[in-house]
């Protein structure tokens, strides 16, 4: 499964990169590669079964804390 994910990302990289190299868009290539790497890391974490927090649950917790701090007399 991990191999599959890496393979897919490699494929995506190979799909996009040659065109950028040909046009000498180095900045674009750099940003693209970094974004893709971030995506790869998170995908691998998900596939590897690491329990990432759910985004909205995270915000619920944050806002609950902020709310508590703001409510007077607690």
């Amino acid at each position: 499964m991990i191999l599959l994910v890496v393979g897919v990302f490699l494929l995506l990289f190979l799909w996009e990169a040659p065109g950028l190299v040909a046009k000498e868009y180095w900045r674009e290539l750099a940003v693209f590669t970094i974004l893709l790497l971030i995506g790869l890391v998170f995908s691998l974490l998900l596939v590897g079964g690491v329990e990432l927090p759910y985004i909205e649950s995270f915000w619920i917790k944050v806002f609950a804390k902020v709310g508590k701090a703001l409510t007077p007399g607690s």
């Binding site: 995506l12 799909w15 996009e16 065109g19 950028l20 868009y25 674009e28 290539l29 940003v31 693209f32 974004l35 893709l36 971030i38 995506g39 995908s43």
Partner: peptide, 8 residues
């Protein structure tokens, strides 16, 4: 080129 990573 950024459309693809952001799609992901």
């Amino acid at each position: 080129p950024l459309a693809l990573p952001f799609g992901l």
